[in-house]
Design a protein around this nucleic acid. Structure first.
Length: 381
DNA sequence: AAGGCGGGGCT
DNA sequence: AGCCCAGCCTT
C-alpha cells in the first residue's frame, strides 16, 4: 500500500458511476455482472443485467432453468458460450457445494467460465479478499504507468503486473481498489483518449512523463522499435582508428565499436537534464540542435575518452570546424539508430584505456566490427 | 502461444 | 465497410 493507492481510492469514491451491480455484495449478482461485462460495455450490459436478475434471482433459479431460456435472456449480448458457462456454473455450484457460493479465489476459479479475472473480481468485491482482478482496463493502466514495453498478454507481463499489484493493493479495500483501476481505464485512461489532467496517478505515470500515453500498451507484433541517436567519435592517428570494446551485455554485446554514446529519443530531455550540464540540456529539445552543437561533442569526448592530454587539441578542432557527418541510419530488430559522427585527428598517442585499442583498417576487417560502424568506416576511407 | 467466440464503437 | 476491443476455453 502506497500513497498512490490512497489517491486512487479517494478519486474512485468521489467520481464512481452509480451502477446496478455496485449496489450489492451478493456474489451471485456480481458474478452475473462480471461475466456480462466481459467484452461488453457497461451501457449495453445494464438492461440485460436487470432483466437477468429479475428472471433468475438466485443460483438455484438459474441452475434449475432450461439452457434455452438462459440463452434467450442473453440474446443480443454476443459470446453465447458465456451464457452456457453461467448456466453450467450454477449447476456446478449446486452439485459441488450444495448451493453455497465459493468464497475464495481458488474455489471461484473452478467454476466453468470463471477465469483469473472474474475469480479475482468476485473474490475482492464480494468477499473482500486481497487478490487482483486484471482486465483490459487494468492492463492498459498498468502498461502506461510503467511504460511497459511488452504486450500485456505475455507471461512475463502478467507475472510482473501481479507482483506490482501485490505490492500496492490495500488490504482494507481490495475490491474498491480493483474497481478504481478499472474505472480509471474506462473513464480517464481509455484506449484512444486520455485525460491525464484529471488522473490521480498522473505524477506516478511513466508514459505521461514521456508524453507517450497512447504508445502503451504495445501490441503483439508491434514490438516497439526504439529510436535513438547514436553519436560517434572517429579518432584517427595516421592510418589507424581508435576502437572500443562494448559491454558484455545488451545491444551488440562484446563487439567492437567506434567510441560514442547512444541517446534515446524517447527520453532525450530527461536524460539530458540528468546527465549533461544544464546549459547543454536545452539543446536536447531538438535532435538536430544536439548534433550540431560543439559543446555536446566536446562533452561527449570528455565522457568517453579518459585521457585529458589532447583536450586542447580536440577543443581547437571542434571550434575551428565542427564537421558533423550523417545522418546514417541503421536498423536493428528492435532499435533504430540515427547515427552522426565527427572525425578527430589525434597528434599524440592516447594513454591506453581499458577496452580501447588503435587498429589499422586491415585489422578492422578481422575483428567483430558491426555493420553499423562499418558503414561509418566506409565513408571515411 | 495462438485462434475462436459476437456484438458495439470508432475511423 | 473494415478494424479494434478482450476473458475464457481449447488446441
Amino acid at each position: 500500500m502506497d500513497v498512490w493507492s490512497e489517491s486512487l481510492l479517494q478519486w474512485f469514491w468521489k467520481v464512481k458511476r452509480d451502477l446496478p451491480w455496485r449496489k450489492t455484495k451478493n456474489p451471485y449478482a456480481i458474478w452475473i455482472s462480471e461475466v456480462m461485462l466481459q467484452q461488453t460495455q457497461v451501457k449495453t450490459v445494464i438492461p440485460y443485467y436487470l432483466a437477468f436478475l429479475e428472471r433468475f434471482p438466485t443460483v438455484q433459479s438459474l441452475a434449475q432453468a432450461e439452457l434455452e431460456e438462459v440463452l434467450e435472456m442473453w440474446r443480443g449480448l454476443g459470446y453465447y458460450s458465456r451464457a452456457r458457462h453461467l448456466w453450467e456454473g450454477a449447476r456446478f455450484i449446486l452439485d459441488n457445494s450444495d448451493g453455497k457460493f465459493p468464497e475464495h479465489y481458488e474455489g471461484l476459479l473452478k467454476i466453468p467460465g470463471v477465469g483469473e479475472y472474474t475469480a479475482g473480481a468476485i473474490a475482492s468485491i464480494a468477499f473482500g479478499e486481497r487478490v487482483p482482478a486484471i482486465d483490459g482496463n487494468v492492463n492498459r493502466v498498468l502498461a502506461r504507468i510503467l511504460a511497459w514495453e511488452e504486450p500485456t498478454g505475455r507471461v512475463k507481463s502478467r507475472r510482473f503486473f501481479r507482483e506490482v499489484l501485490e505490492d500496492c493493493q490495500p488490504s482494507d479495500y481490495p475490491g474498491d481498489f480493483n474497481q478504481a483501476l478499472m474505472e480509471l481505464g474506462a473513464t480517464l485512461c481509455a484506449p484512444k483518449i486520455v485525460k491525464c489532467e484529471d488522473c490521480p496517478l498522473n505524477r506516478a505515470c511513466a508514459a505521461h512523463e514521456l508524453a507517450q500515453e497512447l504508445a502503451f500498451p504495445v501490441k503483439q507484433g508491434q514490438q516497439r522499435v526504439t529510436e535513438s541517436l547514436r553519436l560517434t567519435l572517429v579518432l584517427r592517428k595516421g592510418d589507424r582508428f581508435l576502437i572500443n570494446k562494448r559491454p558484455a551485455e545488451g545491444l551488440l554485446a562484446n563487439l567492437w565499436e567506434f567510441p560514442g554514446e547512444e541517446i534515446f529519443q524517447q527520453d532525450r530531455k530527461a536524460w539530458a537534464e540528468q546527465t549533461w550540464p544544464a546549459a547543454v540540456a536545452e539543446f536536447f529539445e531538438n535532435a538536430h540542435s544536439v548534433v550540431l552543437d560543439t559543446k555536446v561533442w566536446y562533452e561527449l569526448y570528455q565522457r568517453v575518452i579518459w585521457d585529458r592530454v589532447q583536450d586542447q587539441n580536440v577543443w581547437y578542432q571542434l571550434e575551428q570546424h565542427l564537421k558533423v557527418k550523417g545522418p546514417l541510419y541503421h536498423v536493428f530488430s528492435h532499435r533504430r539508430w540515427e547515427m552522426y559522427w565527427i572525425v578527430l585527428d589525434c597528434s599524440e598517442e592516447l594513454q591506453p584505456q581499458e577496452g580501447m585499442r588503435w587498429v589499422s583498417r586491415e585489422e578492422l576487417e578481422k575483428i567483430a566490427f558491426p555493420v553499423a560502424f562499418q558503414k561509418v568506416l566506409i565513408q571515411e576511407l
